[in-house]
């Protein structure tokens, strides 16, 4: 196992004179960044990321970030736009590979296996670390085929009956089965926005992942659909490690057990959600969650 790295709290080593008055001050804050506040490790990690740096061309999007994703818990990533939180979770299943100019360094492990190892095949990795995207993106296929897509590709079922079972359990887990069981042949794009997003979650869990990454899964949904998805996330936590990027601090508070605050490419603070929101350890975190910027 990895040695546990303790990033000790470094309160007040940087004390911005004025915070929240524009990008210039924020950039200066980050320049004398002394290290992540809080414990980046967990007792039972599904994934561990150490010293991750990401560049898009010349521009660095993630700077020396280390973070564990714990089993059976939800970690939420918050922070102002462009802070790198989406980039970070896209590193966890190598979705950044699809962007030509993107370069990743550091050590990211899934159950001890370095996922950026040259010998590692990215295909099974993405089945193990599934992803749900910002905008619901069902394929223009039937509801059934949407869910069956992954299992068929990976040969998870021996026969038609096996696929049927996977589709049913996945849709049930995603809380969609009762709504669509009579119209599995209809196009997935015909569902409502919230149903589409749950269909995408069902599609992700159909390949039995260990980790589910969610990139602002509710930002395109109405409040009621959002509440449904949030309940679903809470249920899914029992079986999967979940990392969710969100712009809504209320959502982070509602669904997650741990919260990580990103700022200009750095992980500023991480800790139990309750602690972060009641007693933030870093000035920037405090400014963000009290609404002074972001």
């Amino acid at each position: 196992m990895h040695t546990t790295i303790q990033y000790m709290a470094a309160e007040n080593t940087l004390a911005p004179a004025v915070s929240g008055d524009g990008g210039q001050a924020l950039a200066e804050d980050s320049r004398d960044f002394a290290g992540t506040v809080g414990d980046v490790t967990v007792a039972n990690p599904a994934m561990t990321a150490r010293n991750v740096n990401v560049w898009y061309g010349e521009q660095q999007a993630i700077i020396d970030t280390s973070l564990d994703i714990g089993k059976s818990q939800v970690i939420s990533m918050i922070g102002p736009s462009g802070c790198g939180k989406s980039t970070f979770i896209r590193c966890l299943n190598r979705m950044n590979d699809t962007i030509d100019s993107c370069r990743v360094t550091g050590d990211i492990r899934l159950e001890g296996q370095n996922i950026y190892d040259k010998k590692l095949d990215v295909v099974p990795l993405r089945a193990q670390v599934g992803m749900v995207f910002q905008k619901p993106n069902p394929f223009p296929k039937s509801i059934y085929d949407n869910v069956a897509y992954g299992p068929r590709i990976h040969g998870l079922a021996e026969d038609k009956q096996g696929v049927d079972e996977i589709v049913e359990t996945s849709l049930s887990k995603a809380g969609l089965w009762d709504e669509v069981k009579d119209r599995l042949g209809e196009p997935g794009t015909g569902l409502s926005g919230g149903q589409q997003q749950r269909l995408c979650i069902a599609r992700t869990i159909a390949v039995s992942p260990e980790v589910i990454l969610m990139d602002e899964p509710c930002s395109a949904l109405d409040p009621i659909a959002t509440a449904t998805i949030e309940e679903l996330i809470d249920e899914l936590r029992q079986h999967y490690a979940i990392a969710i990027v969100t712009h809504s601090m209320q959502q982070a508070a509602r669904v997650s057990q741990r919260t990580a605050y990103f700022h200009l490419g750095r992980l500023i603070e991480v800790g139990a959600t309750d602690d972060i929101f009641t007693n933030p350890g870093h000035r920037l975190t405090e400014d963000y969650i009290t609404g002074r910027f972001g």
Binding site: N93, M95, T98, V123, P124, L125, R126, A127, G130, M131, V132, F133, K135, N137, P138, F139, P140, Y149, G150, I153, H154, C200, R203, T204, A206, V207
Partner: peptide
């Protein structure tokens, strides 16, 4: 849409 490609890559295709 790129979203469809992402979705497909995302389940390991």
């Amino acid at each position: 849409p790129q979203a469809l490609r992402d979705a497909s890559f995302g389940v390991g295709a």
